[in-house]
Simulated assay, not measured.
Amino acid sequence: MKRVALFGAGRIGRIHATNLAALPGVQLALISDPMVDAARQLAAPLGAQVAPSLDAVFADASIDAVVIASPTTTHSDLIGRAAAARKAIFCEKPVDLSVERAQACARAVAGAGVACMIGFQRRFDPTFNEARQRLDRGDIGEPEMLVITSRDPGAPPVDYIRQSGGIFRDMLIHDFDVFRWILTGDGNDEAAWLSATGSCLTDPAIGEAGDIDSTAVTIRTRSGRLCQINTSRRAAYGYDQRFEVLGSKGLLACGNHRPSEVTQATAAGTRVDNPEHFFLQRYREAYRLEVVHFFEQLQNGRPFRTTVQDGVAAQVLADAAAESLRTGQPVTLQ
């Protein structure tokens, strides 16, 4: 039985808590959050206890693993403390808003010899993962171009945007990871060149907070493969999550998920459901599967699908995109 402590009783914390409580061989033992009432309300129906303090969690020898679902600004500190306490670590993206601090986390994890997985849940989405498996089988030959569409139905509160690190580090961090996972495969063909531009088109308050809400990013890998990413904070029709991979022998296209797959056709026209409303619905199964993977790999000692090094690599791309937007010039990557 693996005993687990969860940091964070907010939206993502609640998702992970529910999934953890349902896993056989896993006990959600402690929940820690500065908002004690939120922690208590989450813990009670799941049979968990509220942690008296952070120190108590890390000092508890019965805790085998920690799940970090607290605000981004706390991630690197909690990873460092968990590594020092020799706890296995699952941490929501990103590792940190700073590449340097993310790299320091990677060194701390390696130095302590602990297992650490970063929560890029899109790699566990059944649709996207099926595409990855078909690529691995060579179904469309060598992948040459990737086009990612990633659009939210609406922006988060402006107060959140102010402390988010910007759209590239907050929202596109997932898309940068998908680029690496799908197009560069085993990591031997990383990004070599990146160009990013963006605008504030959906809400002037986002611009006043120092951010943008609409972006276009182009990436070229060392071997010349190309990726285009388009994102928006506003899609009136739902949560728009798609990508397509063009290969030497064909195409793989991953479409949106819908509440139902019913197509209604009448004399007045044809109707289908809009995409799922938001990420909580779209990636419901992916969130479950990633924690299943975490504990399965812990049990068998095999590597995780998403590592702290993947977190660092995505952060490097986010920083490059922010620099390209700032200067109006492409960025060459090492």
Score class of each variant (00 low, 15 high):
E190T: 09
N19F: 14
A286D: 04
F128C: 03
E261P: 00
R134E: 09
F176C: 05
T149I: 10
N274H: 14
V99W: 04
R222K: 13
L54C: 06
P153V: 11
N274S: 14
V95W: 01
P259K: 12
S98Y: 09
A235P: 00
F168T: 02
D64N: 14
K87G: 02
F124G: 01
S214C: 10
G207D: 10
I219Q: 01
Q241I: 12
F243W: 04
R123T: 04
P126W: 11
L251N: 07
R151Y: 05
H75F: 05
K93I: 05
G141C: 06
D64F: 05
G111R: 09
G138F: 11
A102M: 09
I12W: 03
R222L: 11
A267V: 08
G185R: 11
S70E: 02
G207I: 03
A17N: 03
D203S: 13
Q299T: 15
R282Q: 06
L97T: 10
I229L: 06
R305T: 09
A59W: 05
N274R: 13
V114I: 11
A115C: 06
R271K: 11
L6G: 01
A69Y: 01
R162K: 15
A5N: 02
R282H: 11
P143G: 06
C200H: 07
E244H: 13
Q309V: 14
D203M: 05
R151L: 08
T74K: 05
V57S: 03
E142W: 03
R137A: 14
G301M: 08
T18P: 00
A48E: 00
A155F: 02
G255N: 12
I229N: 00
I15L: 15
R86W: 05
G269C: 08
A39N: 03
C91I: 09
V57H: 04
P24A: 10
F120P: 00
L183T: 02
M171R: 08
R169E: 07
R225K: 15
A104E: 14
K249H: 14
P94E: 04
L251I: 12
T270V: 15
Y283H: 11
R180K: 12
A235W: 00
M171F: 15
G13P: 06
D125T: 10
L172P: 01
D77I: 09
T202Y: 05
A44R: 13
D211C: 08
A267W: 03
R169H: 15
S76I: 01
P157C: 08
I167P: 00
I140A: 07
S32V: 02
E285M: 12
D152S: 14
V217F: 04
W193C: 07
V331I: 15
D319Q: 14
Y287W: 06
L194E: 04
F304Y: 08
G238L: 04
P126V: 13
G10Q: 07
G47C: 11
A22K: 10
P303A: 15
A318T: 07
P259V: 04
A84P: 03
F128M: 12
R258H: 15
Q334A: 13
L30Y: 01
S32W: 10
P330Q: 08
S214W: 02
V114A: 09
R225V: 07
F179I: 02
R162N: 06
